[in-house]
Design a binder for these strands. Structure first.
Lengths: 192, 192
DNA sequence: AATGCTTTTTATCTTAAGATAATTTTTGCC
DNA sequence: GGCAAAAATTATCTTAAGATAAAAAGCATT
């Protein structure tokens, strides 16, 4: 049932049967309804998340407008900044779909790291990978025009367009929903 | 002489005298002239860098245009993606000023990590911190207008404006130099 | 002081994004 | 099938950025 977590981890470090059992024991799995809020602005994140099924969105609320910064889907881990830094969150996390999510509290995660120390190496590798990914996407974002960013997202994450409303994709691309709509029209007439 | 490196490290892990001596031994320090290139597109990075004195810029060359993605100054470490991933670099690193830089090759760094294993913890902490920083700047970048980004940079890194040509700052802000110049004029007349 | 090079600004024109409001389309639901 | 809410599009007007070219200002060096 939580094989996704095991295969996620074993991309970084090998696990024995025993260790797999320990991880299964520790698993806390929850279901959330669409629009359920996993973390609010101002709140201290007590947990990090691993998405087994569904889709989660992170966003800032600025002058009453939601600015989406990320979409997380199956087999992605979410470690809120607030979880790491022990400070109030500046952004929200909420479910775009009914979702099944594994939770790790600080205590539970620390226990796991005590019992299976090599998980520290996994975390280190993962962070290093995420840092590189983030840097690459940021660099791309800066050097591409909104239209190029849209076209690029169409290629790299086509799945999103089937499960996420366009107005969230718009703010994720750093533009307004109205502008995205206009752009899509422009692009489609270009192609023809 | 390389106390900066020691105090950089001890922000993350304590060091004994012995360990400090080991680090000093391993240090390879070089001087570079303004415009010296530390890493070229297409090249495999053999080293990572720690800036003791001076300023380094990272940039992509796109359609003959340089797009600056970062400025590194005193006491900042640079670990090229190419160094970590062992693949050709997509960007350049070059000196904006005459600079004094400590170099760490893969071999030398691995030796250090063998001799002082707790440095792994430092690297892990540093990466986690850098990931958070990168995420925050990316989120800001997306939600701010070019003008707001300019004003924010003026506050967060005023030093840059004294040592870096505006046309590099412009591409760093994701706009053209002409546009930055126009914007500065607009902003200055607003204030009056 | 004169020259050449780098950096910044100005000007003009074009294009696309922001703001706002209204309308249309789609979707879910009783 | 009809209704309400959510999502997407359209229209209009304003504002700022991109492209390009040219001029001006700042520097360094001889």
């Amino acid at each position: 049932m939580t094989d996704e977590i095991i295969s996620f981890i074993t991309r970084y470090v090998p696990l024995t049967e025993e260790e797999i059992a320990i991880i299964h024991e520790q698993n806390l799995i929850r279901s959330y309804r669409k629009d359920a809020v996993l973390l609010s602005e101002g709140e201290y994140a007590k947990e990090c998340f691993f998405i087994l099924q569904g889709c989660v969105r992170s966003y800032y609320l600025i002058d009453g407008e939601e600015k989406t910064t990320d979409f997380y889907t199956e087999s992605q881990a979410i470690t809120p900044i607030s979880y790491t830094k022990k400070e109030p969150s500046k952004y929200f996390l909420s479910c775009l779909e009914n979702s099944i999510i594994a939770l790790g509290s600080t205590e539970r995660n620390n226990q796991l790291l005590e019992k299976i120390p090599k998980l520290r190496s996994m975390v280190a590798q993962l962070n290093s990978e995420l840092l590189i990914q983030k840097q690459v996407s940021f660099d791309d974002f800066k050097s591409l025009s909104p239209e190029q960013r849209y076209l690029s997202l169409l290629e790299t994450r086509p799945d999103l367009f089937n499960r996420v409303p366009l107005y969230h994709i718009a703010t994720f691309l750093g533009i307004t929903p109205v502008s995205l709509s206009r752009m899509r029209k422009r692009v489609s007439t270009k192609v023809k």
